[in-house]
Simulated scan of single mutants.
Amino acid sequence: MADPINVEVSYALPHVQEVLKVGVPAGATVRDAIEASGILRKYPEIELDGRNKVGVFAKLTRLDTPLRDRDRVEIYRPLIADPKAVRKKRAEDGKAMKKGGAAGGEE
């Protein structure tokens, strides 16, 4: 039998970030690591087959993606506003953009 691998499962909320270390068998998938971490019991609002996307080291991935030792699985919250729609609305309203994306009127 292959040695277990160690991974982290991360879920960030506005005021707290959960990072759980978990050992899973070699060949485990993203879904396996999330389920083994227990994070779904702690945060029942997470919907893996619905509104929440997942990634490994900030790269979107599928739930059936196999993991490697020391990977970091990330569970993403849905966006509350589409960034493209926000930029389009600002442009329509004639608001100037400052460096860093903040709206401003002075240059």
Score class of each variant (00 low, 15 high):
residue 88 K to N: 12
residue 83 P to R: 03
residue 14 P to K: 10
residue 34 I to Y: 08
residue 91 A to S: 15
residue 68 R to M: 07
residue 17 Q to P: 03
residue 19 V to D: 06
residue 30 V to Q: 03
residue 97 M to Y: 00
residue 77 R to F: 09
residue 33 A to Q: 07
residue 62 R to S: 10
residue 5 I to N: 05
residue 28 A to V: 00
residue 84 K to G: 13
residue 6 N to W: 08
residue 101 G to D: 05
residue 35 E to L: 05
residue 96 A to T: 06
residue 44 P to Q: 01
residue 26 A to P: 04
residue 11 Y to Q: 08
residue 100 G to V: 11
residue 28 A to S: 13
residue 65 T to C: 01
residue 25 P to E: 00
residue 74 E to N: 07
residue 40 L to M: 09
residue 15 H to F: 07
residue 40 L to Q: 03
residue 38 G to W: 02
residue 6 N to D: 13
residue 28 A to P: 03
residue 86 V to E: 01
residue 103 A to E: 14
residue 101 G to R: 01
residue 64 D to F: 03
residue 97 M to T: 04
residue 98 K to E: 05
residue 10 S to H: 04
residue 58 A to W: 04
residue 34 I to C: 07
residue 2 A to F: 11
residue 15 H to T: 14
residue 54 V to N: 07
residue 68 R to W: 03
residue 96 A to F: 03
residue 97 M to F: 02
residue 19 V to C: 11
residue 9 V to S: 13
residue 32 D to Q: 06
residue 43 Y to Q: 06
residue 88 K to A: 03
residue 32 D to T: 10
residue 99 K to F: 11
residue 57 F to P: 10
residue 69 D to K: 09
residue 20 L to D: 05
residue 104 G to K: 06
residue 51 R to V: 14
residue 15 H to M: 07
residue 44 P to M: 03
residue 63 L to P: 07
residue 33 A to D: 08
residue 87 R to N: 08
residue 92 E to A: 15
residue 11 Y to E: 06
residue 89 K to F: 04
residue 45 E to V: 01
residue 89 K to Q: 13
